[in-house]
């Protein structure tokens, strides 16, 4: 395993750019030079994560209670205006970042862990196990993520935890198929044969030999699914099948269509926040892919 992929797994893509032995600050500067857009998007995401963590202290008003006149245009006391219930939209956008980021991070983590496990096992052992697992993967992958998530949420009910689980399950098959594909080519390598020859057990080969070599592509896949995860969470909330009120969610805040013509700021700001997060994840995903596979740069 090369040094750079090892670093990429533990400290994020920034480290993979710089050769080892430099100071952290030099590496950051190099990252900004080589991947300026990736660096900007990383800073935006880190900023949004900080906003989400410190939301209760950052929000100027109570996000769930009416604190002013209804449908008031943006002003110095309510930067993004107020909604039809007199709630401060700026505070709701800040609090809504928690929902979006929690789902983005935890659902992706769940899907990556489950998908990697299934892909590793299915690809390494092959045979009838692979055949059966892949038919299930086919079945789930036939449907768009939003439709899958809708069906599952209708069954398990709306809550933040369920949204995370449902989206995590929904992205698992796609990730597993990609991991399986890499395993199929990777397992033919001599180091796997060598490990087998000295009597390493299958779990040991999977965990100690195969998995470390898959970290880079798994990071790429994981970052690639994040924009979709955020969009599906927003879509579920928008349709009233995501996180239940009173938890602020950007998607849900966009569903009060009737009031938008009287107060367009109600539609504009949660949507802008949502688009910004998705944009940052998209750009970061591209940057990570470029770093891991420089042949694709500038494409």
């Amino acid at each position: 395993m090369s040094d750079s992929t090892a670093n990429a797994s533990s400290e994020g893509a920034s480290v993979a750019v710089g050769p080892p032995g430099r100071t952290r600050w030099q590496r950051v500067r190099r990252l900004i030079r080589v991947q300026p857009i990736g660096a900007i998007s990383l800073f935006i995401i880190l900023g949004l994560v900080l906003v989400a963590i410190f939301a209760p202290w950052l929000a100027p008003h109570d996000a769930t209670a009416g604190v002013g006149p209804t449908l008031e245009a943006p002003s110095s006391s309510h930067w993004f205006g107020t909604d039809n219930q007199g709630r401060d939209i700026f505070s709701r956008v800040i609090e809504g970042s928690r929902t979006a980021l929690q789902v983005a991070i935890f659902a992706t983590a769940l899907g990556v862990v489950a998908g990697s496990f299934i892909g590793l096992v299915s690809g390494y052992f092959g045979g009838w196990l692979d055949m059966i697992v892949q038919r299930f993967v086919d079945a789930v992958m036939a449907f768009p993520l939003l439709i899958l998530a809708l069906v599952m949420i209708a069954v398990v009910g709306e809550s933040l935890r369920n949204v995370i689980i449902v989206i995590g399950i929904g992205i698992t098959p796609g990730i597993s198929r990609i991991v399986r594909g890499i395993v199929l080519s990777e397992r033919e390598n001599q180091y796997i044969e060598a490990a087998r020859t000295i009597g390493a057990s299958a779990p040991r080969i999977l965990w100690r030999h195969l998995l470390p070599n898959l970290v880079a592509p798994i990071v790429v896949v994981g970052s690639a699914v994040m924009p979709g995860v955020v969009l599906v969470e927003a879509g579920l909330s928008f349709l009233g099948l995501g996180t239940p009120p009173p938890t602020p969610s950007w998607g849900r805040d966009l569903s009060d269509q009737r009031f938008f013509r009287a107060g367009p700021w109600m539609a504009i700001f949660p949507g802008l926040a949502l688009s910004l997060l998705v944009l940052a994840f998209n750009l970061l995903g591209d940057a990570i892919r470029d770093v891991v596979d420089p042949r694709l740069r500038n494409r």
Binding site: P227, A234, L254, R261, P264, A267, G271, L279, N282, L283
Partner: peptide
Amino acid sequence: SIAGLSIPSFWLALLFLTLPFI
């Protein structure tokens, strides 16, 4: 294209229904 990939279709729909009306 990066903007198109990042803007949720339902938000765009809401803007299309709201802004031209205003």
